[in-house]
């Protein structure tokens, strides 16, 4: 499996990580190497095998559908780089 620079650029965009052309070049090699290595999984006979969804056999618990927390807006935004009036502040997204 080899990856080209355009694919690296596409997945960087999907992952929202800016990459320079130089980095894309390097990453194409590194990621391609890793993907080539994981391709050996294709050798395993997995016909009729269920994909693992839970590593320990147990049922997820449900709880009462009641509010158990809240009223802590100030705490929630406390670590935000920018906040105002209990809201997170981001660059303008609508004109």
């Amino acid at each position: 499996m080899s990856l080209d620079k355009a694919t690296v650029a596409r997945i960087s965009r999907l992952a929202r990580i800016a990459t320079t052309e130089e980095e894309q070049e390097r990453l194409a090699g590194e990621l391609g190497g890793i993907l080539a290595w994981v391709e050996q999984l294709g050798e395993v006979d997995t016909d009729g095998v269920e994909p693992m969804t839970s590593v320990v056999e147990m049922l997820l618990k449900s709880r009462e559908d009641v509010v158990s927390d809240g009223g802590i807006a100030d705490d929630v935004v406390r670590n935000a780089p920018k906040s105002a009036h209990g809201f997170f502040v981001v660059p303008k997204v609508v004109e």
Binding site: A15, I17, A18, N79, K82, V90, P91, K92
Partner: peptide
Amino acid sequence: DGVKFGLRVESDDLTEMYEKTRA
């Protein structure tokens, strides 16, 4: 993503802010 905690690299564009912060 530069919004809720930690580092933020400013930009006028939201997507670019995400991308630069994470880079």
